[in-house]
Every structure is written in structure tokens, then in C-alpha cells.
């Protein structure tokens, strides 16, 4: 009896079912270089549908006339009309300046408090697990809830904060924090920092767990104190995490007007008007989607520029 030797050049004959068996076909496809593209296809389609298409649509909108309550104006291309208007629009410049203050102050405060909280919780002292949960609670609150809660706490009539400050002698009378342009932005920044500092705490804590303890032991032997260890070991080792957290928070702060919408609605006057809120109001109060699109494109460019510059300056990708 002769034996048949099956090789790649001489495969065994397939039955009709084997030829169309989808599992076999998938198995064979997984061995090819097209498999990677096939796996990426669903997410690529999803991103195209929910991110890329709206982004491109928004960009083209910024070059068109699009006022929903003025259909007679049509939707013709207007090229850079909206961008030219922006340059002469004092509210845009006020909003840009306020956005810079809002974002940098909030990030600085959130990072500082978040770092301190993470370092404290990382010491594994008794009760830190409970404290870690409590510290994260503000972050789990929706912006709307946090906004209304603080609006009541800072209320000039019924607010507990005013009451405490007056009773402790720090204030002589109840203060209308959000009605005074000199305190409205600061009060909103404090609310924002309270709400979002746990984001930094969470990420920094995760990063701290990954730093080898040997480094600290060696630093101890070399006589490095706590601040030297923080400066020379902890912060450099957390560089990538901090960079990612800062970029994510900056994107969130620039894009989300909800907290300011609840606390101040951009007022008093234009004291807390920021770009995202201005774009929102332009689109949904004035129904001028063309100009709102242009404002959004400017925000997009600013964010891209910031992310690029920040990554370069922090030298994250050089490690």
C-alpha cells in the first residue's frame, strides 16, 4: 500500500463544506498580513462615523453661511467671512483670554491638589483606602449636579460657605461670588478644581505604584530628602502620565462649557465667557452654525497646537 505525502504544494483534497467553512477561512486569513487591517476595520468605521465625519462637517460648516433661523440667507460658501468677523469680534477676544485663564488656573490647581492627594494616599497608612474612595467621589458626580450643588453652597442668601465665612469672621457680610466680576471666575475655577482633581489623583496614584521602591531606598542611602526624591525620582518617573493627564484635562476644559453654563452662564457681563460657551451660545441661541463652526475650528487648532507644543516641551516622547 502506497502512502501519500501531503505538502503545501500538494494539499489534501477538500470537501465542498471545507471549501466554504467560514471558520476555516477566518483561520487562514488570520495568518496573512491583512488580518491586522480586518481587526482595525470596525473601530476605524466607528471613528469615521462619530469623530471624523462630524469634524470634517464642522470644518466645512465654518466656511459656509448657516443660520437656521434665516433660511433666506441660504447656505452658500462664504470662505473666510466668519474668521474675518472673529478677528473684529471683541467677545471672541474676551472669551479667548478667559479660556486661557480658566484652563491654566484650573489645571494648575487640579494638578497640585491631585499630586498632593496621590502622594498622601500612596503611603498606605491606616484609613487611606477609605479616603481614596471619598476623594474620588467628586469626580463621579456629573458636572450638572456638581454645578448646582456649588451654586447653592455659594448662594449669597442660603449658602453654607458664606455662612461659615461670616461666622468665622473671614467675611463681614454675605458675598455674591458669581455676581462680582472680580470673584466669579475664581469661584468657578475652585468648583472646577474640586470636581476634577481626583482625575489627577487617580492617574498619579497608578503611576506611583509603578515606580520601583529600590530607587527611593537608594536615594535614602545617598541622603536625598523627601523633596529631592520628589523632584529627582517621582516627578521624572511620572512624566508620561502627567503629560497624558494634562492633555486630557486641557481638552476637557476647553471643550466643556457645562459647569460655567450652570454657575454663571458666561456672566456677569462677559467675565466668565469662554470659547466653548460662546460657540455653544452662537449655535443654539443665535442659531448661527457657520460662525459657531468657525469658533470650534479655532478651538480645535488651539488644542492641536497646545498638545504638540506640550509634548515637545515636556520631552515625553524622548524617553
Amino acid at each position: 500500500m502506497s502512502r501519500v505525502l501531503y505538502t503545501a504544494a500538494n494539499p489534501p483534497a477538500r470537501s465542498a463544506w471545507e471549501a466554504i467553512n467560514p471558520m476555516r477561512m477566518i483561520g487562514e486569513l488570520s495568518e496573512t498580513r491583512y488580518w491586522m487591517y480586518l481587526l482595525l476595520l470596525p473601530s476605524a468605521l466607528l471613528i469615521t462615523a462619530v469623530v471624523l465625519y462630524p469634524t470634517l462637517y464642522g470644518i466645512q460648516l465654518s466656511f459656509r453661511e448657516m443660520r437656521l433661523n434665516r433660511p433666506a440667507l441660504g447656505t452658500d460658501w462664504v470662505l473666510f467671512k466668519h474668521y474675518a468677523r472673529m478677528l473684529a469680534d471683541p467677545i471672541f477676544w474676551t472669551a479667548l483670554r478667559n479660556t486661557a485663564v480658566w484652563v491654566t488656573s484650573s489645571i494648575a490647581l487640579e494638578f497640585t491638589v491631585g499630586l498632593i492627594a496621590a502622594l498622601a494616599l500612596n503611603r498606605n497608612l491606616p484609613g487611606t483606602k477609605v479616603l481614596a474612595v471619598l476623594i474620588l467621589v467628586p469626580y463621579f458626580l456629573p458636572n450638572v449636579v456638581a454645578g448646582h450643588m456649588w451654586a447653592l453652597m455659594l448662594d449669597p442668601r442660603l449658602g453654607v460657605i458664606n455662612d461659615l465665612l461670616v461666622k468665622t469672621g473671614l467675611l463681614t457680610g454675605y458675598k455674591a461670588w458669581f455676581a462680582d466680576p472680580s470673584t466669579a471666575m475664581a469661584a468657578a475655577i475652585i468648583v472646577e478644581a474640586w470636581h476634577s482633581f481626583p482625575f489627577f489623583t487617580l492617574l498619579i496614584m497608578a503611576g506611583l505604584k509603578g515606580i520601583p521602591t529600590d530607587l527611593y531606598k537608594a536615594a535614602d542611602i545617598d541622603g536625598a530628602g523627601p523633596f529631592a526624591q520628589l523632584r529627582l525620582i517621582t516627578l521624572p518617573m511620572l512624566k508620561t502620565i502627567i503629560a497624558a493627564a494634562v492633555i486630557l484635562r486641557v481638552i476637557g476644559l476647553v471643550n466643556s462649557p457645562d459647569l460655567l453654563l450652570i454657575l454663571t452662564n458666561g456672566g456677569p457681563g462677559r467675565a466668565t465667557q469662554v470659547l466653548s460657551l460662546y460657540a455653544f451660545q452662537t449655535a443654539y441661541k443665535d442659531f448661527n452654525f457657520g460662525y459657531a463652526g468657525a469658533l470650534s475650528v479655532v478651538m480645535f487648532i488651539l488644542l492641536m497646537g497646545f498638545a504638540w507644543a506640550y509634548i515637545r516641551l515636556s520631552k515625553v516622547n524622548q524617553d
Binding site: 433661523n69 456677569p268 457681563g269 443665535d286
Partner: peptide, 21 residues
Amino acid sequence: FPGAAGWAESSVLPNFQRVLI
């Protein structure tokens, strides 16, 4: 009229607030 509500909210109110403050 078209634009009335937006004008009232986006201009009348903030400009009045500017006088108040």
C-alpha cells in the same frame, strides 16, 4: 421675530449685566 430670543439672551442680558457691575 427671527433672532429675537438669541439677541435678548446673548446681547441684552450680558450688556445690562455690564452696567450692573
